[in-house]
Design a binder for these strands. Structure first.
Lengths: 166, 166
DNA sequence: GCAAGGTAATTTGATATCAAACTATCTTGC
DNA sequence: GCAAGATAGTTTGATATCAAATTACCTTGC
């Protein structure tokens, strides 16, 4: 079936049973392959991070914060593509653990801004290191097709990532 | 930067604000683009399905069942890549709504098999129709790169989708 | 200046998910 | 046969997510 698995075709029983044979109806659906690839690779990252007692879900939050002096929850929500109500609890946890700090916005009593603490920056760096390791494997897998892959994925995100309707 | 966006560079204000500008640190990470592309495109499908009062999460379950006379929950779990405990509640809901039926396995009292009912088959067809519509847009976006895309995604899934360790 | 409507964050409620503990049953070794 | 261990499914507990409702504050039109 083409697709040379390349690495060790016989050690530690890699074939076996579980390999998740693709249902025929999904065979030709990009969405299916996209989903499976994303889920499996993210779970690998999450397992590695979890083993080091790091919360994989915090990675993007911390990273986005690492690139800006400070942001409001709503800005973070837009950039990370998570609902504001989701961020409420994440930010509560991050702040509880001293990874971020909040400070009131003097111009708007409803709002506040968050920024990384030193600890938060440290955790971001650790998570980023793990992410980079996993992404190197993705690089190898993509090989010469990396640029095409990223371009296509970018177009998908741009097309479907619009506000609501279309 | 190569990657001719091709389609309408100016109509209906595509730039605007919300476009989720990619954080610099993620720019070169395949995993990031993979995640965003998957999430946005799946959400589009889920919204469309939800509007028709169909549960998008049931799609893969029903589709897998549509291709086999019957299966046990454990087999479904392996094929769909969901934990067995997750399936317990899904199957309860599906069966509650008359979309599947369970029948005891005479050879093993612990187990049972599930199969689609006529209604279940109908719902699968409706969901599949919606999925196909969305996938046609993915096809357009991928264009000539579709084969490469699917191949790379397949390799990613195969690499990371192994049992546990490596 | 004040009422009407908009916006920021939170709370609440629903769903999906996994992992670990549990129950019931089956299989194996002896 | 029967005890020990494996397996099928479920339950329980934790987390992540969204959507809708809520509260507090801001902005605008007049």
């Amino acid at each position: 079936m083409a697709m040379e698995t390349s690495t060790r075709p016989d050690t530690h029983a890699p074939s076996a049973e579980g390999e998740m044979l693709v249902p025929a109806m999904f065979q030709n659906l990009i969405g299916y392959h996209l989903r499976v690839a994303q889920e499996t690779s993210f779970q690998a990252f999450a397992r590695a991070a979890g083993k080091a007692d790091l919360k994989p879900g915090w990675y993007s939050l911390l990273t986005v914060l690492a690139e800006r002096e400070s942001m409001t929850p709503s800005e973070l929500s837009r950039i990370c593509g998570r609902d504001r109500s989701t961020l409420t609890s994440s930010l509560k946890a991050l702040s509880h653990r001293g990874l971020i700090e909040r400070r009131p916005n003097p111009d708007d009593q409803r709002s506040y801004s968050v920024r990384l603490t030193e600890n938060g920056r440290g955790m971001q760096k650790q998570l980023h290191a793990i992410a980079v390791v996993y992404d190197r494997r993705l690089d190898e897998i993509a090989g010469k097709d990396k640029a095409v892959l990223i371009a296509v994925l970018g177009r998908i995100a741009a097309t479907f990532g619009m506000p609501q309707d279309c």
